[in-house]
Amino acid sequence: MNFASDNIVGASAPVLQAIMQANAGTMAAYGNDEISKRIRVRFNEIFEREVSVFFVTTGTAANALALSSAVPPYGLCVCHREAHVIDDECGAPEFFMHGAKLAGLPGVGAKLKAEDVEVYLKSLPKAVKQMPPKALSISQVSEGGLVYGLDELAALGAVCREHGLSFHMDGARFVNALVSLGCTPAEMTWKRGVDILSFGATKNGGLMAEAVVVFKPALAEALDYRSKRAGQIISKGRLVAAQFEGYFADDHWLDNARHANRMAALLSEGLRQLPGVRLAWPTEANEVFPIIPKTLDQALKAAGILYHPWTDLSLPETERIADHEVLIRLVTSWASRAR
């Protein structure tokens, strides 16, 4: 069994079928095809307003391009200290921001609290020696598997508006959070102050299907050019856009995420029944973070079960990992099966 990531499984059948259908015949290149146009309209419907959509092939590209549109080279982007944009992108956001900086803040479960962001922003000197904050980036779902609630998002959005920051959401697991909250995409984004979104589908059934969705028009002005410079204007763009056609059809994306979340809940409940096992954080989406005895860790590895060890930086103050224990991450997917 492999719980290393939700990237380890292939694309779902509806997505592959949509690619095959789009593959036939000839169509305009570089995203000017009818499929791409249709999917842009579909994004408008999903988010209940007109949005700008830029198709890309990786989450790294989506995050780097989104932040480059919001943060000038002399600016600062605030995020959690374990956020994907600061920990797992090999400096891509800073590279595409042409030298702008990421400032990581602490927070339990890899989540930021509005009051902590507010305190940090007020602590920054206003002199020219200090890079001015220009954006806030959060991961929804967080790197601790936690989901920002609607009130939490609204509070962060209010801080951004007060301080003139653009609000970016890294939505690599966007739909897992969406079905966990039971809300609409609009309610989880622009209605709570989000200005720009990295919309991920690859982890939830896509082949390589990501998008930058922009709610604040000023941030979209240069993204066509930025995307081209980043090698993300794909000549056969219809084969990227087509994935979203299969993904959205008949609520396939929602069904996939609900299944992945259910599998995580089932796994979480089973683990909690084992002696010496407890959860570092609640299971709110499709990631489970148990603290287990090292003897169990060794037994699982010997049985060929794959997963990653995890950092304890974002544990609650009351939680400690003993010398005989280890914190691990287990990820379920749309293709996971109950056994």
Rank of each mutant, 00 (worst) to 15 (best):
L197K: 12
M188P: 00
G205K: 13
A222C: 08
F199G: 04
M188Q: 13
S198N: 11
L223T: 09
E221V: 15
A211L: 01
E221Y: 11
P185N: 01
A220M: 05
R192M: 05
P217V: 01
T202N: 02
W190T: 11
P185H: 00
V214K: 06
V194R: 04
A201N: 09
A222V: 06
T189A: 04
P217D: 08
L223P: 08
A201P: 00
W190G: 09
L219S: 04
V214L: 03
A209Y: 00
F199V: 04
S180F: 03
F199P: 07
R226M: 05
D224T: 12
F215Y: 11
E210P: 00
K216A: 14
T189P: 04
A209H: 05
F215R: 12
S227N: 06
F199C: 04
S198C: 11
L207T: 10
D224Q: 12
L197I: 12
L181I: 14
V179H: 06
A186E: 07
G205A: 14
N204H: 07
L223G: 09
K203F: 11
R192E: 03
K191A: 11
E221N: 14
A211T: 01
K216N: 14
A218P: 01
M208D: 15
M188Y: 01
T184V: 02
T202Y: 04
L197P: 11
A222E: 13
